[in-house]
Write a protein that binds this DNA or RNA. Structure first.
Lengths: 200, 200
DNA sequence: GAAAAAAGTTGACACTGTCAACACAAGTTC
DNA sequence: GAACTTGTGTTGACAGTGTCAACTTTTTTC
C-alpha cells in the first residue's frame, strides 16, 4: 500500500512546519530532506495545499483521540470539564497540531473532503458530551439548541487558547496558563449551560 | 508627509487581500497595480511582513472605533451587550479586517510595535467595559480578575466568530448567524460575569 | 539654485509551485 | 515469455516571488 510512502513525506513536512511554521513549508524542502528530487512529493500530493490538508487531517485524528481519552465520569458536567482539560492540554502540548487545525487558513474544504470529515468528527465528540448534559437534565433539547451549546463551549475554549497565544507578549504579564484561569473559565461555561432558557 | 504615499500602497494591498486573501498578497502585484516598478513598495515597507503588519494595525484602529461607537448605556451590562453586537457586526461586516487581526499568523510582534499597540488598545476598550460592571457591582476587583473576565468575554466572541466561519460548510445547515444565537451567547456570557466567585 | 531627502528604476539572485516528458522497477495479464 | 499497467522517481523548464545592490529621478528644504 502507498500509505507508508506517504508517511515519509508527511513526517518530513511536519518537521519543517515545526521548525519554520506553516508558511515555511515547501515541497521542495521536503524533497531535499528526503534526498529525493523536487518533483517526488508530487507523486503523493497533487499540490502543496493537499499536503497541508493531510497534516491538518492527521492533527484532527490525534485531537479526536485526545478528546475521547478524557475521563468518562458519571457526572456529565465532570466529564465535560475533563474534556475541557483535554482540549486545553492538547492546545498547550501540541501547539503545532492545534495551530494547524484552528490557526491556519483552511484550504478550500470542498477539495479536501477527508480533512473536513475528521474536523466534523471532532466536533461531534464535543456535541455528544453536551447532549449527555441535556439528557441528564431530562430536558429534551432540539438539535439546534445542542449546536448552540456546543458552539458556546467550543467558542470559549478556542477563543481562550487563541487569545492566550495572541496576548502572550503584552506588557503586564497576565498569567493565563495557570489552572486557576482554567477553573474560572470552566465555571463560567457551566453556568451558561445549567440555565439555558430564561432571558428577555 | 509620507503618509499619503504610504496610503496608496496600503489601499492597493488591501484590495489584493480582498481578492486573493492574505496569502495572495505580493509586493510585486501591489507595484504592478500602481504602475510602478517592483521595488517601489520597498521604499515604504522594509519587507512584505511590514505591509501586512500595517494592514493589521489599521484594522485594529477601525475595530477600536467600532467598539467605542457602541451605545454607551447606563446599565453596564447593556453596554457590554451593545459592544458585543458591535464586535460581531464588525466581524461580519468587515471580514477582511477581522481575519487580518485575528485569523492571521501575527508577524513577530516585537518587530511591529505600532501594530501591537493598537491591538492592546482594542483589548483595553473591552477591559474598561468589564471594569464598569465590576464597579457597578461594588466589588473591588483585582486586575487579574478583570483580565480573567475580559478574556472570558473575548474568548467567547472570538471563538464564536471563528467557528462560525470554520463550520460554515457543514452538512446540516446550522444557523449561526441568526440573532437568536447571539442572544443566547450573550445570556450565557452575562451569567458567567454575574456570579464570579463560588465554585469548587 | 544647491544640497539633501524621498521616491522610483533596472538588474540580478535564490527560492518557490507546478507542468511536461522521460526512466525504471514490480507486478499482471495474455 | 512479452506486452502492459502502475507506482515511484528524475531532469528540465517556466513564471512567479522576496529581497539585495546600485543607479536615477523627483521633490523638498535651505
Amino acid at each position: 500500500m502507498g500509505a507508508d510512502a506517504k508517511d515519509k513525506y508527511v513526517d518530513a513536512a511536519l518537521q519543517i512546519v515545526a521548525e519554520m511554521g506553516v508558511e515555511g513549508l515547501s515541497l521542495r524542502e521536503v524533497a531535499r530532506r528526503l534526498g529525493v528530487s523536487h518533483q517526488a512529493p508530487y507523486r503523493h500530493f497533487p499540490s502543496r495545499e493537499h499536503i497541508v490538508a493531510e497534516l491538518i487531517r492527521r492533527s484532527f485524528v490525534e485531537f479526536s483521540q485526545c478528546l475521547l481519552a478524557a475521563e468518562t465520569l458519571d457526572d456529565p458536567f465532570a466529564h465535560l470539564r475533563s474534556m475541557g482539560h483535554a482540549y486545553l492540554d492538547f492546545a498547550q502540548g501540541r501547539p503545532l497540531q492545534y495551530h494547524l487545525m484552528f490557526g491556519t487558513l483552511m484550504p478550500q474544504s470542498d477539495a479536501h473532503v477527508e480533512m473536513r470529515m475528521q474536523s466534523t468528527a471532532s466536533f461531534d465528540i464535543l456535541l455528544q458530551a453536551i447532549a449527555a448534559i441535556r439528557l441528564n437534565q431530562s430536558e429534551s433539547a432540539a438539535v439546534a439548541d445542542l449546536h448552540q451549546d456546543a458552539m458556546f463551549v467550543w467558542s470559549t475554549l478556542h477563543g481562550f487558547v487563541e487569545l492566550q497565544r495572541k496576548m502572550g507578549d503584552r506588557k503586564e504579564p497576565v498569567d493565563l496558563s495557570g489552572h486557576g484561569m482554567r477553573d474560572a473559565l470552566f465555571e463560567k461555561v457551566e453556568l451558561g449551560l445549567r440555565k439555558p432558557k430564561s432571558a428577555s
